[in-house]
Simulated assay, not measured.
Amino acid sequence: MQDLLTQISALRRPRILIRAARIGAESYHREARLPRLLGYGNVPRLGPSLVA
């Protein structure tokens, strides 16, 4: 079984998708957005939320 960083580094995505994700990440605030989207107050840590 691979660890999370190995799995992420093995992904292959089109350059335009990577560029759009980087632009969107600049203005994304997970503490403000995730509780509203997920419906609860505690925001999961980054690792567990990626694996799920």
Rank of each mutant, 00 (worst) to 15 (best):
G39E: 07
R30C: 03
M1A: 10
I23Q: 15
G39M: 05
M1W: 04
L50C: 07
H29A: 11
P48E: 11
I16M: 12
S27N: 10
V51K: 03
R12V: 06
R15M: 05
L17N: 14
S9R: 10
T6G: 09
M1C: 02
A10M: 09
P35G: 04
P14V: 01
Y28N: 05
S49R: 09
G41C: 02
R19C: 09
Y28M: 10
S49I: 13
L4K: 01
L50E: 08
L5W: 08
A52S: 15
S27T: 13
H29K: 12
I18M: 12
Y28V: 10
Y40Q: 12
L34Y: 07
R15H: 13
G39Q: 06
A10W: 01
H29M: 04
G24P: 05
A10D: 13
D3K: 00
Y40G: 08
I18R: 14
R13E: 00
L34P: 07
L38M: 15
R13T: 02
G47S: 11
E31N: 14
Y28S: 07
L38D: 07
M1K: 04
S49V: 12
Q2E: 12
E26F: 05
R33W: 06
L11N: 09
I18C: 13
R36H: 13
D3I: 02
I23S: 13
Q7E: 09
L34W: 00
R36L: 15
V43W: 03
S49H: 13
S27Q: 10
R12A: 00
V51R: 02
L34E: 02
N42R: 11
L4F: 03
A20M: 10
L5F: 05
N42C: 05
Q2K: 12
R45F: 08
S9G: 00
R12P: 01
V51G: 03
Y28Q: 08
S49Q: 14
I23V: 15
P35L: 05
M1L: 07
L34H: 01
V51H: 06
Q2M: 09
S9T: 06
S49L: 15
Q2H: 05
P44G: 00
I16F: 11
I18W: 00
P14G: 04
A52L: 12
Q2Y: 05
S49F: 13
A21K: 03
Q7K: 14
R15K: 14
S9F: 01
G39D: 02
P35F: 08
I18Q: 14
A21M: 11
G24C: 06
V43Q: 04
P48M: 03
R45I: 01
P48R: 00
T6P: 06
L17R: 15
Q2S: 12
S27G: 06
N42D: 00
